[in-house]
């Protein structure tokens, strides 16, 4: 439990850092670090496939995409972030954490839930026999993403 808590706190810290840091590259990297923490948390929750996906795809691929974008858009002028953020963000965030903790403590065991039976089978069984329509959706969303990128980076004959 202590390790899990430490990992969760690390996840939140790095995520907050990713938002707060001024330098884009640093904030992309701390986002990747947060993903790494999340991946380990998933492993510890007996979800190895989700953990692998989180680490390889989110911490890996998406970070690469972010860094690529940062490199490609560097020519633009520096964006002046408002200074207010530096104190407004922590203030609101800490206030929310306190409210959040109180609400969760108040809710403890209050939300009614059905007792669930233990699941049987393996990840593969559940994915293939339980949620096959998700796979159709995944194919569709990948197609959408591919066509979107193709459309946005097409050359030449565009109207003005």
């Amino acid at each position: 439990m202590i390790v899990q808590t430490a990992l969760l706190i690390g996840l939140v810290l790095f995520s907050v850092l990713a938002i707060l840091l001024r330098d884009l590259l640093k904030s992309a990297i701390s986002l990747a670090a947060a993903s790494l923490f999340l991946g380990i948390i998933f492993f510890r929750m007996n979800a190895p496939y989700a953990g692998v996906f989180e680490i390889s795809v989110v911490a890996g691929l998406i970070t690469v995409l972010f860094i690529l974008t940062i490199a490609l858009t560097k020519a633009g002028d520096e964006v002046r972030e408002s200074r207010v953020v530096n104190w407004v963000f922590p203030l609101f965030f800490i206030a929310f954490i306190i409210i959040d903790a109180l609400v969760m403590k108040g809710l403890l065991r209050k939300i009614p839930a059905l007792a669930s039976g233990a699941e049987t089978g393996t990840f593969g069984d559940v994915l293939w026999k339980g949620r096959t329509f998700d796979l159709v959706g995944q194919i569709a969303v990948i197609l959408a993403g591919v066509f979107a990128v193709l459309a946005l980076f097409r050359k030449g004959d565009k109207h003005d």
Binding site: N46, G121, L127
Partner: peptide, 8 residues
């Protein structure tokens, strides 16, 4: 956890 994993 198995269903949740496929969702994630």
């Amino acid at each position: 956890i198995l269903v949740a994993q496929t969702l994630v």
